[in-house]
Computed example of a mutant assay.
Amino acid sequence: MALYNYKTANPAFSKDVWKGYASTSNKMTVNGIILKSLFCIFLLLTSAIFTWKMQEFGFNINILMYGGLVAALFFSLLTAFIHRLAPILVPLYALAQGLFIGGVTIYAESKFSGIAMQAIGVTISTFFLMLFLYKSRIVKVTQRFKSVIFVSIAIIMTIYACSWTLHFFNIETPFAILDSSSYLAIAFNALAAGVAAFTLLLDFDFIERKKNHVPRYMEWVATWGLLVTLVWVYVEAIRLMKKMVIN
């Protein structure tokens, strides 16, 4: 398989993001991605704690949460198209995403004490489980596997986008059931969480194929891609556990 014919479901790892870097001498390494990922996770946690502290002082965290979400989307778009600015944009993305995650966590904790730590544990466990499955080749990332994950992500994100958009305009739709604690809603969230988890396999596989082939600053882009997936896993874990507790 040609190096740049590889496909992945995560837009951060699409072939257009990485195209044209094979001849660079200063190459991306796995160790570099690990260090940058740890640094960005630290930034994310720091801004999430900041959101928590602001809530304790009586600040309206909706401003931080939704502002962080919009900023995270903005920095993601810039990172996708301006790769050389990734060393600046990705840390900013982590800080913005931390504001959003902090708000989500506060709301979850206000209703179900201890759910945040459980979700963090699930996210960390999922990461290492997927890494083990990938390294041991228990699950092989074949072309068919990639296609199934890609289609699944497209369907899930389309449903979420429709649900959130219609909900914003107070339009009642069949999608509203997904926000309930019904068995159908739980099944959908479990499916979404599973797809999010298996997306990590595609990310691991793509990073392994690109290491030592693209410039070192692209480690930040790889870090961004992993953060996108990990945040998705965390949010789905919280949503799923809330519904299971209510049910």
Score class of each variant (00 low, 15 high):
residue 131 L to D: 13
residue 108 A to T: 04
residue 25 S to V: 14
residue 141 V to C: 05
residue 184 L to F: 09
residue 197 A to G: 03
residue 162 C to Y: 07
residue 81 F to E: 09
residue 69 L to W: 01
residue 72 A to V: 10
residue 8 T to M: 07
residue 194 G to L: 09
residue 94 A to T: 11
residue 87 P to F: 00
residue 231 V to S: 08
residue 209 R to K: 15
residue 239 R to M: 12
residue 233 V to T: 11
residue 154 A to M: 12
residue 161 A to Y: 08
residue 165 T to E: 04
residue 45 L to G: 08
residue 150 F to E: 12
residue 79 T to K: 07
residue 14 S to V: 02
residue 130 M to V: 09
residue 3 L to R: 05
residue 132 F to H: 09
residue 158 T to I: 13
residue 81 F to C: 07
residue 67 G to L: 10
residue 127 F to K: 05
residue 97 Q to T: 09
residue 193 A to Q: 06
residue 201 L to R: 02
residue 114 G to L: 13
residue 141 V to I: 02
residue 181 S to N: 15
residue 144 R to D: 01
residue 123 T to S: 09
residue 152 S to M: 07
residue 19 K to Q: 07
residue 99 L to A: 04
residue 30 V to W: 10
residue 198 F to I: 04
residue 236 E to N: 10
residue 99 L to S: 01
residue 246 I to V: 15
residue 62 N to T: 14
residue 175 F to K: 04
residue 22 A to N: 10
residue 46 T to R: 12
residue 243 K to S: 08
residue 31 N to Y: 07
residue 78 L to C: 11
residue 178 L to I: 15
residue 225 G to V: 01
residue 53 K to M: 12
residue 91 P to E: 03
residue 116 A to M: 06
residue 146 K to I: 13
residue 225 G to A: 09
residue 66 Y to T: 10
residue 170 N to C: 06
residue 174 P to Q: 06
residue 15 K to N: 09
residue 59 F to I: 01
residue 120 I to Y: 14
residue 88 I to V: 15
residue 140 K to R: 15
residue 180 S to K: 03
residue 80 A to W: 03
residue 54 M to C: 13
residue 183 Y to D: 09
residue 56 E to A: 13
residue 150 F to R: 06
residue 195 V to T: 06
residue 177 I to R: 01
residue 103 G to A: 00
residue 45 L to N: 05
residue 124 I to P: 03
residue 30 V to R: 13
residue 23 S to F: 14
residue 94 A to W: 02
residue 107 Y to A: 06
residue 105 T to K: 05
residue 119 A to N: 00
residue 232 W to V: 06
residue 180 S to N: 11
residue 247 N to R: 11
residue 232 W to C: 04
residue 54 M to S: 07
residue 156 I to K: 04
residue 237 A to V: 13
residue 244 M to E: 00
residue 151 V to K: 07
residue 182 S to L: 03
residue 156 I to W: 01
residue 222 A to I: 00
residue 246 I to K: 03
residue 40 C to M: 02
residue 116 A to D: 00
residue 137 R to V: 08
residue 220 W to H: 04
residue 199 T to S: 05
residue 121 G to M: 05
residue 45 L to I: 13
residue 209 R to M: 10
residue 225 G to D: 00
residue 109 E to I: 06
residue 140 K to C: 07
residue 147 S to G: 10
residue 142 T to V: 06
residue 141 V to W: 01
residue 6 Y to T: 13
residue 68 G to M: 02
residue 46 T to S: 11
residue 145 F to V: 12
residue 92 L to F: 10
residue 104 V to W: 03
residue 130 M to C: 05
residue 125 S to M: 14
residue 61 I to K: 01
residue 147 S to I: 12
residue 229 T to A: 04
residue 32 G to I: 08
residue 145 F to G: 13
residue 65 M to T: 07
residue 12 A to C: 13
residue 219 E to C: 02
residue 115 I to E: 04
residue 71 A to C: 15
residue 146 K to Y: 05
residue 230 L to E: 03
residue 133 L to I: 03
residue 158 T to F: 11
residue 159 I to E: 10
residue 15 K to I: 12
residue 154 A to G: 06
residue 189 N to W: 11
